[in-house]
Amino acid sequence: MTNTQNEINADLIAELLREQHPDLADLPLTFGAHGWDNQLWRLGDELAVRLPWATEDSDELLLKEHALLPALAPHLPLQVPVPQRLGQPSGRFPHPWIVTTWVAGEPADRAPATRGAEAADTLAAFLTALHQPAPDDAPRGRNRGGPLADVDEGFAHFLKETTNLGLIPNPDTVREIWHDALAAPDWTGPSVWLHGDLHPANILTKDGNFCGVVDFGDLCAGDPACDLAAGWLLLPDGAIDRFHQSYSSATDPATIRRARGWALLKALVCLLIGDNGVHGRPGGKATWGPPADATLRRLTATCT
């Protein structure tokens, strides 16, 4: 990427707006957050600007949101950032960027859901609405939504890294859960729409329940187990069974086993990112560590 986090600022965004969307240029700008691929700036009270800044895939993921999310958003029961305008690459900023609706709430890595039953029902309702059969030309994910065997090498890498850092007290139990998930029958139903990246920083809360979902850059089609992993990552203790019962498809045992595998993989990744935040390494987000620890605790506690 040409631009870095430090080179994107309010002055640059105001110039981009004046050049391409002048009717929005006088709205106040405040920094919101920077994710793995994009920066988010609040624009007035109701809008936000998302600009790619970090990875080679950022442009593609942002354009995918702009193309696909407006048609899906009206059918979802939680607020999501709906693209309103597309900014074109220019000499001032050589990447596409978008103006979306602003979604209010606190990221769940900072303000976890606490109302277990209500949060389980809310998450289940959102995924029920999202997990509709996708068209044949729907995008496939970046190692998301396919067979777990496709990410087995990645799992081994992340388990080795987290174990070497002393973040995994019981690696044998973790391997047991993963091998059980790998052995579960593959998904044979239709490929459904997936968020693809439901970790605690991408879902928002208010008053102990979920109120919004953000960052649809990994929107894709595939096995619903990839998203159902969110139950272990996002819900408080004791709510996972309620979540499975509330989800419309009445999750079968094989799908739950695969979802446990996806939850395990995501927890390992979040552990590494969280540890990097604690020790000040680039890309680290210390707030990702505690939810990942809780996820591993829930998964290993139910290992038989």
Rank of each mutant, 00 (worst) to 15 (best):
R92K: 12
L159I: 11
A104Q: 15
L228C: 08
A124K: 06
G91W: 10
W53H: 15
T55Y: 06
L234Y: 10
G284M: 12
D152F: 13
C220N: 02
Q5M: 14
A129L: 02
N276W: 14
Q39N: 05
S246Q: 09
Q39K: 07
L63F: 06
E19V: 05
E46T: 14
D237S: 14
R18H: 06
P89H: 09
L17D: 01
V192Y: 01
D237W: 13
H95M: 04
T188E: 13
L219A: 01
N6K: 14
L198A: 04
C303H: 14
T287M: 12
E60P: 00
L47D: 03
V82C: 07
H179P: 04
G189Y: 08
P83G: 07
P139L: 01
H21M: 04
E176G: 09
S191K: 09
R242K: 13
V213C: 00
L12E: 01
L165H: 13
D223S: 09
A48F: 04
P94I: 14
G283N: 08
G283Y: 09
L272P: 00
D275N: 13
G280P: 05
L130A: 00
P89Y: 08
V80D: 02
D275P: 00
A54R: 15
W53A: 13
L165F: 11
N170S: 10
T205R: 11
A301P: 03
D186Y: 10
D172F: 10
T114P: 04
D215Y: 15
I177G: 00
P185D: 01
T163L: 10
L76H: 05
P200T: 12
D215M: 12
G145I: 05
T2I: 15
W262D: 01
